[in-house]
């Protein structure tokens, strides 16, 4: 394989693997939050900010993968 195709492949793989797990994390996080709201609808106000924070931390990892992809040459 030449350099260019390796880079293309690496970009694709970085994004695919680096997007997979944060997506799973955010999915689980929000599912749990929804479950909690379903059980106790009054708690939705209190849950919102911690849920957003957790989602932001999980999402940051996907963003790191994205930045790595942009810097690959």
């Amino acid at each position: 394989m030449d350099h260019e195709s390796i880079v293309t492949l690496t970009k694709g793989l970085t994004m695919a693997i680096g997007g997979m797990f944060p997506a799973l994390a955010i999915g689980r996080l929000v599912a749990k939050a929804m479950e909690a709201i379903g059980r106790n609808p009054e708690a939705s106000d209190k849950l919102f900010v911690p849920m957003l924070l957790g989602a932001a931390f999980a999402e940051a990892i996907a963003i790191y993968a994205l930045v790595v992809v942009f810097t690959l040459k």
Partner: peptide, 10 residues
């Protein structure tokens, strides 16, 4: 910094 930059740039 990377979170904000990455999201908006993406």
């Amino acid at each position: 910094s990377l979170r904000l930059f990455g999201n908006i740039f993406a």
